[in-house]
């Protein structure tokens, strides 16, 4: 199987957000593979190990993304491609999906996996937009995938219910929490990753009309949520605390 994984470099989930001049500051921030994309990488490796073939990880990003791509190679992916678009202004999900669509134009693929959302912008748009541009069927938020020949059977998380879906390859899927437990890259895997191919291309090396990939949306400003005032730690006997809590919720907060 020819398997591709879409990967994004994102803030570590432990990072606090600092806003500087209306923008999120990335100063001193630790980056990781977007956790949902990590599920996708893991699943791609498992499928490759089971069915044979090759896993290629693709990222639209900046040069720094090389680190996350190397991590995916260390986990067991075979190849990585970085589509550098640092010089590109005005990007949004439409931009990313269009660049990817151009990249996939001359590729053979059976399966494209991505994360269900990224943990920064959380739009969940890139996968479905890409599928639409490529004319591919897609299944979002999968928690299981089995491939048998040309057929994939998937489980999809629908607000707690599970849909069992059948689809034919080629297919695009996006990974939801619970799909698998991503492995830690092994130390020998990390050593080997250095020797695996990591290709860097510039977005304008692709067959793209710059006007067509221009962002459709723009961010006007970014801000932090209002700080919560200090809460009230109740005291006294537990029974008294509970009574006080319920009466507070009932009368002050008007909730119950």
């Amino acid at each position: 199987m020819d398997i591709y994984v879409l990967l994004k470099r994102t803030f570590d989930t432990e990072e606090k957000i600092v806003i500087n001049e209306g923008k999120v500051s990335d100063e001193g921030v630790d980056f990781i593979i977007n956790p949902y994309d990590e599920f996708a990488v893991e699943e791609a490796i498992l499928l490759r190990d089971k069915h044979g073939g090759e896993v290629t990880v693709v990222s639209v990003g900046s040069e720094e993304t090389e680190k996350e791509l190397r991590t995916a190679l260390a986990m067991g992916a075979d190849k990585a491609v970085l589509i550098n678009c640092e010089d590109l202004e005005a990007q949004d999900q439409h931009t990313t999906a269009s660049i990817l669509a151009a990249f996939f134009q001359d590729k053979d693929y059976d399966l494209i996996l991505g994360g269900n959302v990224s943990n920064d912008n959380s739009t969940g748009q890139v996968g479905p937009r890409l599928a639409e541009q490529l004319g591919l069927p897609y299944v979002t938020m999968i928690t299981n995938i089995e491939v048998d020949g040309n057929t994939a059977t998937l489980k999809r998380d629908v607000e707690g219910d599970t849909e069992v879906i059948e689809a034919t390859l080629p297919l695009l899927v996006t990974a939801q929490q619970g799909l698998n437990e991503p492995r830690y890259p092994s130390l020998p895997g990390i050593m080997k990753a250095k020797r695996k191919p990591l290709e860097e291309i510039d977005y304008d090396d692709l067959d793209i009309d710059e006007d067509e990939i221009e962002a459709k949306t723009e961010t006007i400003t970014t801000f932090l949520p209002p700080e919560k005032g200090a809460g009230k730690i109740l005291d006294g006997e537990l029974e008294v605390q509970v009574k006080e809590l319920v009466s507070n919720l009932h009368q002050e907060a008007k909730i119950l």
Binding site: Q93, Q125, P128, E132, M141, T217
Partner: peptide, 23 residues
């Protein structure tokens, strides 16, 4: 921004070559 909305809205926006604000 429900399971349905998340699944379908990006595809609709892509078909109309349009911008989508999610969530």
């Amino acid at each position: 921004h429900t399971a349905l909305g998340k699944d379908l809205s990006p595809r609709l926006a892509a078909r109309f070559n349009a911008g989508l604000i999610s969530d």
